[in-house]
Nucleic acid binder design. Sequence first.
DNA 1: TTGTATGCGTTATCAT
DNA 2: ATGATAACGCATACAA
Lengths: 321, 321
Amino acid sequence: MVSIKDIAKQAGVSISTVSLALNGSPKVTDETSAKILAIADQLNYVPNAAARSLKTRESKIIGVYLTDFNGAFYGDLLQGVKEVLNRKEYDMVVCSGKQSHRLLPERMVDGAIILDETFSSEELLKYADLGHKIVVLDRELNHPNINQVLLDNKAGAALAVEHLIEQGHRKLYVVTGPKGSYDSKQRLKAARQTAARFDGVELMEIEGNFNKSDGEQAAERILREYTSPVAVFCLNDEMAIGLYNAVKHTDYVIGRDIHVIGFDNIELSEYTVPRLATIDYSKRKWGALASEQLLKVLAGEPVEHERVYVTLVKGDSAGKA
Amino acid sequence: MVSIKDIAKQAGVSISTVSLALNGSPKVTDETSAKILAIADQLNYVPNAAARSLKTRESKIIGVYLTDFNGAFYGDLLQGVKEVLNRKEYDMVVCSGKQSHRLLPERMVDGAIILDETFSSEELLKYADLGHKIVVLDRELNHPNINQVLLDNKAGAALAVEHLIEQGHRKLYVVTGPKGSYDSKQRLKAARQTAARFDGVELMEIEGNFNKSDGEQAAERILREYTSPVAVFCLNDEMAIGLYNAVKHTDYVIGRDIHVIGFDNIELSEYTVPRLATIDYSKRKWGALASEQLLKVLAGEPVEHERVYVTLVKGDSAGKA
DNA sequence: TTGTATGCGTTATCAT
DNA sequence: ATGATAACGCATACAA
């Protein structure tokens, strides 16, 4: 490995001069600077990140923690994070799984963006206490070193339920997400509240886990109980698509007998027939916002929690009653 | 930040004893060791990765480089990588974009797995020359520090074309991938060779870029030129699905007028109607193999290039002529 | 079994 | 404008 020491020797100067030159300091002559840079280039010099981090106490790397790498869902969000970070000379790495948690306390990353229920709040608070900076996208957590950028789930769920009711539906099902999911809990709560605001609206709950198969199972129950057209609010699109698949094998028709609305507006939803009604939000902006917040926290700027707004996407899957 | 120095002070021993104890050396009494561990725990001690890396010259982290984070495609592959690495006390980070390349030469990662055409072979060779260990999944590159784990594209493309021909088709289209894609080039070449082996088989090429929209555009041309049933080999499933979508809006029917076979067997393909015929391979195994190879290279073990085998998945999308 | 001393590659402070 | 030197936190060879 070639270090500044090697460059110094070759250039006949001291390592301090080399360091200054490499960092573009004006305190060194253009002449010597040019010479040093040339030699560095010729020797294929690359600074050692560990040494630099040890000294500067920062890595210029941000870690994004995900539950897994499945789902085209994350693509845009990560793109949003990366764009913002890269513009500020930071790099992004994505990781998953308990073992990677160490990157944060060991200071391999300067901060973390969390979208991973399996990363316990307890552990996050511990790291925050130790001074590490974190942005959470999937829970509420109040700590000076933690900022939260959350989806406006309540507004989204309200929009969804109101839309179904406006379409004339009175008999509603809601297919829930994982018990531990913040998004699911929020959406469910808002759905209940919204439904309760209307007279004669009946809301039945079916447990799900945000997977396609849960939508399929929900369909089974719904069809079993079928007496007249019903509306279903799947708390995410994935389950709505599972429901589509199950109904496809029957004589019932989505948008006529079974009316459906989802949440997330994932890419796949655009290709559904009939078009799945759903709740949309910019995943890219979500990621961008999260990283902006994290950079502010790292810079010591005071920041308020942020919220990502959502909109209703109408679709023939949720027709008139 | 609490360092071994703090622990040493508190425990009334020297830093070397602390270091030994923390690393579970048998050279230190169980008694003092226990005391030290207790204090370390109490002080919330976490080793500093930078300092450790600087000393040991390794980070125990492997970087996986992807073009982007879209496509559920990568999920299984990354899972395969992660499982193998975690078992060996390594961590995986996933990155994308030119800016992250630095992690390799700067020794922030001990090695890299490349699935990113935009990472130039020239640059990879440069790093390999500097002693960095690399496994490539998307090109042929011969260098002592580079190992390749490639898909058996040729076999896959041959299987696909042979299947269409066996079904009685003589008029074939092939929708290609990006010009720079190794997978695309290999598949196209094998498709041509296979078609050429049969008399009376006509193979027409349509340029694509592995995106859904390319499949849609290909469909337009195919339908424009339509005179009798044709078969189409889309060099990836994504484009095949685009083709499905375009045909859906017409009177033509997939599996009757337009026969289609894809490549990759992505998750979405399982949900297509009719079932898309395609070429399957274990993405998980691919990732596992890649990381195993990388670990071997890192350990200095001699390794041969590896190959991931593929199989044909029949589907009603490619019916009898 | 434990302590002392050195160095990893870099940045930064202080002289010169 | 440049150089000598210390320090970051850790591992380790060697001494005691």
